[in-house]
Simulated assay, not measured.
Amino acid sequence: MKTKKGFKLRTICGENIIVAEGIENIDFSRIISMNESAAYLWQHIQGADFDADTLTKLLLEEYDIDEATARQDATQLIAKWQEAGIIA
């Protein structure tokens, strides 16, 4: 998987928000907000191929959590990003 072009992470009023850049990506019907760990992952996978294993490894490197929790979180996050249409 890869992040789709035209979606950038911005911090607005202390919130991590995915902002669509370019007319083809503009959809004002929803705002994509990310918590700290999701924003961390997004920053580290920009422009690179990734999968649940990649995200799991990044979570384990940054946070004090067990592998099962990291894998579950990574899998759920990928599903949410797919639903939001920001990865392909």
Rank of each mutant, 00 (worst) to 15 (best):
K80D: 15
E21G: 09
Q76R: 12
Q82V: 00
A88N: 13
Y63A: 08
A79E: 12
L9A: 08
Q43C: 11
T11A: 13
D53I: 01
Q72R: 15
K8P: 00
A70T: 02
I32N: 02
Y40P: 01
Y40N: 08
N16V: 02
T56N: 09
W81P: 01
W42R: 10
D51H: 12
F28D: 04
A39G: 06
A38S: 13
E67C: 14
A68K: 15
E61A: 08
I18C: 07
A48Q: 14
N25W: 06
L9K: 05
D64I: 04
Q46P: 03
R30L: 01
A70V: 06
R71A: 06
V19S: 11
D49Q: 12
I86H: 08
E21Q: 07
G85F: 11
I86S: 09
D27A: 01
Y63R: 13
A70P: 09
K57R: 15
L55S: 01
Q43T: 09
A20W: 02
I17T: 08
F28C: 03
T56Y: 03
T11F: 03
L60P: 12
Q46D: 14
E62A: 14
S37G: 01
N25S: 08
N25D: 04
I65G: 06
L9E: 08
A84F: 11
Q76H: 12
